[in-house]
Every structure is written in structure tokens, then in C-alpha cells.
Design a protein around this nucleic acid. Sequence first.
RNA 1: CGGGUAAGACAGACGAUCGCGUGCAUCUUCGGGAUGUAUGAGGAAAGUCCGGGCUCCACAGGGCAAGGAUGCCGGAUAACGUCCGGCGCAGGUAACUGUAGGGAAAGUGCAACAGAAACAUUCCGCCGAAACGGGUAAUGCCGUGGUAAGGUUGAAAUUGUGAGGUAAGAGCUCACAGGGAGGUAUGGUAACAUACUUCUCGUGUAAACCCCAUUCGGAGCAACAUCAACUAGGGCGCAAAAAGCGGCUGCCCGUCGCUGCCCGGUAGGUAGAUGGCUGGAGCUUGCCGGUAACGGUAAGUCGAGAUAGAUGAUCGUCUAAUACAGAACCCGGCUUAUGUCUUGCCCAACUU
RNA 2: GCGGAUAUGGCGGAAUUGGCAGACGCGCACGGUUCAGGUCCGUGUGUUGGUUGACGACGUGGAGGUUCGAAUCCUCUUAUCCGCA
Length: 118
Amino acid sequence: MLKKDILRRKDDFSSIYKKGKSIGERYIVLFYKRNGLSYNRIAFLASKKVGNSVQRNRARRLMKENYRFLKDDIKSGYDLIFIARNTINGRKADEVNKSMSNALKKTKLIDQNKDHRN
RNA sequence: CGGGUAAGACAGACGAUCGCGUGCAUCUUCGGGAUGUAUGAGGAAAGUCCGGGCUCCACAGGGCAAGGAUGCCGGAUAACGUCCGGCGCAGGUAACUGUAGGGAAAGUGCAACAGAAACAUUCCGCCGAAACGGGUAAUGCCGUGGUAAGGUUGAAAUUGUGAGGUAAGAGCUCACAGGGAGGUAUGGUAACAUACUUCUCGUGUAAACCCCAUUCGGAGCAACAUCAACUAGGGCGCAAAAAGCGGCUGCCCGUCGCUGCCCGGUAGGUAGAUGGCUGGAGCUUGCCGGUAACGGUAAGUCGAGAUAGAUGAUCGUCUAAUACAGAACCCGGCUUAUGUCUUGCCCAACUU
RNA sequence: GCGGAUAUGGCGGAAUUGGCAGACGCGCACGGUUCAGGUCCGUGUGUUGGUUGACGACGUGGAGGUUCGAAUCCUCUUAUCCGCA
């Protein structure tokens, strides 16, 4: 993952929240919006509701790890924000993987027939 | 075996595949690239409760005022409200633990309710030819009066018990006991302890104001320094009398910045970037000094530096491997959260 | 990272030189009024023990301490909220 792939600016976030679409899943919430670039930009968030800093870091790492397996199948030109819900605490990697691929299938940003589990 | 108490250790390891930050080397299409290699969270990283370094405010300053903190003694330390060793007091059968522990005999305040009274107070009681006055057939009968022994209330009521004494009483006197203050002697660096002796005798509260001693300037890495798009229009130089505004917690000094004029082309600084950013009161081991905290010395050693934030995922073996929990400028403490194990000591019980 | 504030019955919110905790309002329960409901009026309303009586114990986010006595003073702690780029 290169640095240009990470969403960083406040303006980008607020425009995605405002104008983008959102999908809820068991462990995560996904915001997405077309960005007009040739590549995807992403961000992984975990609010204080998720827990203390250890739990928040773990939530973001699990999402990041699973994004690695999914990213090649995602269409280009979108901004994506993955937000952890507090139900993610104590979950294993493949449970989160299932939740993320379900969310992406709902958005039709990903090929629905392929098996995306590692 | 059970209960308790004190001290200490570890905080997973190894292998396989994939993945991330940083340093270095090489390659490079010079891009926030690729490959290789090294390295990569804690005992509390936490709470932000104290102390310091560092940066800026003037070199951290002067005077007055106000305020904060600390408070037995000796030592350790860069410093501390921390640590070590002791003293007194309190708790515990004990091991052991706790302790904001100066001054109430400088002054002020407060002590609700209850109670007569919360400082010198007479409600009940006691006394009375002890004193003065009045009165009765008579009588402390009445007024002034004497009295804190007894009663009641309360957390607390003028040190307790006994005897003498007295009208009744009173440390008024005596004996014994208790508290406080002073002195002397002995031991100890000291706090203090023990003994003797003189004087004296009502409380509590200073985590109420206060007094005494010691001590403290403010803000913080979002500090601060450098570079610098877009936008906005300001800035250099010169002059310096006075004043105003703002910063340095209040006032007076002191000081920094801004408010003036002229000239002609640059300066300030937002987004952003870079530095600050990790080699330090450092860590490990040995020896020496010290009861200890700690200090000295020799050798060895370099162990994160991110910037939306790097340690992860899956599997196997061992195992108690689980709990609390993630560096964000850096150190020394304190406090709180928390898994497993080890050792010493105490109590109780049992066996030989 | 730094700085600051708050916490009291089911809810809002009183009570601070330390001295009866829960005033007052809302809500809730019961009773009255009404044909019925609302309004209105009255009573009760923290937890718990007790013969549901008298009365006692515990209760101001939590744990200690000072004091005769603590919601109030002191120390530690937990949660929530606010401000600073």
C-alpha cells in the first residue's frame, strides 16, 4: 500500500460522508464515493466506542490485513472508508473478511461470484 | 495441607508462509520506486498526581502584595510531596502494617441537637446565729449571698480514688495515681528514651482562619526554529519626547511586540514541509564503600522514532502462556489495572 | 498531548462558615370527583431488616482519611462533558 492510497485530508472525508453512499454490515460500516482518479484511496477508522487503544488498533489491523486480499478485485476510481463497529471486538480475521466482502458485494464494487477468502 | 504477611521473577519461545515502519547498502524508469540486510512497544507505555531536563517569555530578573506546596529526626538524590534507616503514636495473637506526626501555654472563629452551662456557667440540689437586710407562733421562711461534692445532657463538663477539712464545699491540705511545662543526669549525631527533681492542673478542632520554618516566576513539543504555494496587502530603513494597548498570574520597576514619517520593491506568514526526535542523571556484568536508599570504579554495549500513526494474519510444537494493556519530546518517582510462578517469615492444626 | 468542569431518589434540580439529606417541580402508584377519560383535589413514592407497627441499618459515582459528626474538608480513583491545532 502506497502513501498516496491513504485518505488523509479533512475535506475528502467530509465530502465522502456528505455525498457518498454507505453500507452497514455485521462488524463494519463502509462509506464509498467515486473520486475521479485512476486508483482507489482508502481509510480505516475505529472510534472510541470500539474500546481502548489496543482494541482500536486491532480492529484497524484486521481490516487492513483483509483489504490486502480483497483489493485486487475492487474496481478502481473510488474512495473507501471502512469504519469498525464495537461488535468487532474478539472477532477472528476470517469473520471480519466475510463481513467486508459482503459489504463490498452489496456495493457492486467487486465481482460477486468469486471466492475472496484467503 | 489451610489461613495470613513480606519480598522477588517472567510478561511467551521456536519453526513455516504472507504483510508493515525505520536505518544502511545496491539498483533505478529518480517516484511517497525495487531488492537485500539489520532492527522494531510496557511493567505499568495508562492516570497526569509530583519532581527535573529542554524551548520560548529578558539572562529568569528586583521590590511589595497575594497565593500554592511541604511539615518528627538523620541520610540518599539533579530534584521531589519520592526513597532508605530510625523515633513517637495507632492497629494486629503474630509475621508485619499504617501514619499531612510543628504550634491550641500568641490571637480569632466554631462545637448543631440536647443540656443550667461548651470557658468561669447556679436549672435542680447543698449551705447558712459565716456576713447584711426583712419576716414568722415557729422553721433557711424571703432577698442579697456562699458552694462545682451530687443530678441531668452530650463526642466532650474543670484530672481520678481515698482521707482530712468545712456552714456546705473547693488541690484548700495530705497520700497514691494520671496529664502538662521547665531543669538536671545518663544513652543517642538527632527525633527521643530512662531516671531524678521543681512548678502546674478543663476540652476538641489548625485536612477552620492563622502563627512559625522551608520552598515555589509563567507557559508548554499543539513549546520553539527554518523553508514556504494560494490568498491578503504589507514590510525595510530612520527618528525617538511622551502616551496608549497587549505578553511576562496582581501592583511598581524592568523588558518585548504593536500604534508615526519617508522611500521603493520585498517581507510577514496560513495550508503544507523540514528540524526539534532520541546516546541518556543510559543499559549489562564484576569489584569496592555503606545496615540500606545509594555512591565510586573497571570492562562491555547502543536497544522504536511513527505523523490518520509501523509489531499483524494463518498454521504447527512446547507451555500456565492467559490477564491488564500500545511509545508520540525525554528522564526520576507516585498511584491505579492485571495473569502465572518462586522464596522467607507468622498463626493454627496434624503426623513422627 | 495539554488545560478545565461535573457527578445527589425513575428524571430535572435544591441543600456548602461541616450539624435532621433528598426542598421544589415532573413522573409513577392509590383514593376522591365524573356515566367514562382528561383537568382538579388528597395521600404515598431511595434500598433493606422487622409482627409491614414502633423502630433500626445502609444510602450524595467508588475507596480511604481528618472530625464528636462529612453531600460539604483532604488524598486516591472511575465515568461523562467542554476548550486548545
